Amino acid sequence: MQKVELIATATFGLEAVVAEEVKKLGCEEVRVDNGKVTFRAGLSAIPRANLWLRTADRVRLKLGEFRATTFEELFEQTKALPWEEWIPEDGAFPVEGKSVKSTLFSVPDCQAIVKKAVVERLKQTYRRDWFEETGPLYKIEVALLKDTATLTIDTSGPGLHKRGYRQWIGAAPLKETLAAAMILLSRWQPDQVLYDPFCGSGTIPIEAALIGQNIAPGLNRSFASEQWPTIPRALWREARAEAHDLAAYGRKLEIIGTDIDGEVLKVARHNAAEAAVEGQIHFQRMAVGEWRTRKKYGCLIGNPPYGERLGSRGELAGLYRNLRELMQQLDSWSFYLLTADERLEYQLGKQASKKRKLYNGNLKVDYYQFFGPRPPRPKPVGSAEKEAEG
């Protein structure tokens, strides 16, 4: 089977999480760099990676990488790449770009040079001087970093965070990919309770339900490369059939989402219905200090309001007080909180077991992880009888 080199782009701080997901898909030669995970696999990895990667931003097909300090070098080496193996005669191939610490710092000029080089290459193959670009989309990116140019084609289309269920959003929405990463980093298991006391439009509970039932996050959306003639339609059909077969739709979950805003909970319920997981999540209007549970073990995962999301310092102090009391009550639970407030540990009177720097959009945040004791493992069936016999 033809092997291709792919790049799963990632938000800073999530590269290792994306790499773990890529490895679970069975891909080879997985390499982690800042903001991306590069790997090799067969053509079937393009549909499977797009369908299954929960924490990556998008999946790019790597065409080539080379050093370029002049426009001539950029043009000639771009032209030498096999664009015709992917872009058909009617393909649409806009070019976007970025340049960091490179001699070729003008992004518009680099985009124009790459576009011209691709056109010249395709002219040789298709024996024509003009391309109408009315067919499938092949969005090319030229990324220059320290004079190294990487040329890729986007296989995803809209970013992978666009699962298709979030038609309505609340204020300051959490990206779906970041919410999924928070859950994966918590090591939450589907047989545990998961509680989000600041659920807003429901992103964390919905992503938890998709993970808990092993539902591929891209199952209800389309991708740019589905229209590429180079990738047989059968591979997409097989990947979607596999995703349906692997989903544990019948698995019961205990996921709770609460918020003090009744209107945003209407949005959360609508989004959960769009994701077809509404039966797995209990949404309720409630302040964090009012929630009670008899469950001895569980995970609280949340994105507390801060900055513009909160009206006053008094509200913030009250929220932290309630959260501190809840941590004292649920002393055998694990707590995972994402916030830009660097005073969180001081406010809660407790040092995090682990802290991870992440980004929510352009905002630097920290993911505070307070580990509780491990729940006891259930005894194997028949062990009680054996103990009685002994």
Rank of each mutant, 00 (worst) to 15 (best):
M1H: 08
Q2I: 10
Q2H: 12
K3P: 08
A16Y: 08
R31V: 15
G35V: 10
K36A: 10
R40Q: 14
A41Q: 08
A49Q: 02
L51D: 03
W52C: 11
L53V: 06
L61Q: 07
F66G: 10
E76V: 13
W83C: 11
W86V: 10
P88T: 06
V95Q: 06
T103S: 10
P108A: 11
Q111D: 04
Q111L: 04
K115S: 10
T125W: 09
D129C: 01
F131M: 09
T134Q: 11
D147T: 07
T148P: 07
T155C: 05
G159Y: 00
H161V: 04
W168A: 15
I169M: 07
R187N: 13
P190F: 11
Q192E: 15
C199V: 02
G202L: 01
G202N: 01
A209V: 02
A216G: 12
Q227A: 12
T230Q: 14
A239L: 01
A243L: 07
D245G: 10
R269D: 13
H270G: 14
A273F: 09
A276N: 09
A276G: 05
Q280G: 06
Q280Y: 13
M286D: 03
E290L: 05
E290Y: 06
R294T: 10
Y297V: 00
I301A: 00
N303K: 08
P304C: 08
Y306K: 01
R309V: 05
G311L: 15
G311Y: 14
R321G: 13
N322I: 05
E325M: 05
E325S: 11
E325D: 13
S332V: 08
A340V: 04
Y346L: 12
L348N: 00
K355D: 01
G361M: 08
D366K: 05
Y368E: 06
Q369T: 02
F370E: 04
F371M: 09
G372Q: 03
P373Q: 06
P376T: 01
K379I: 10
G382K: 07
E387S: 10
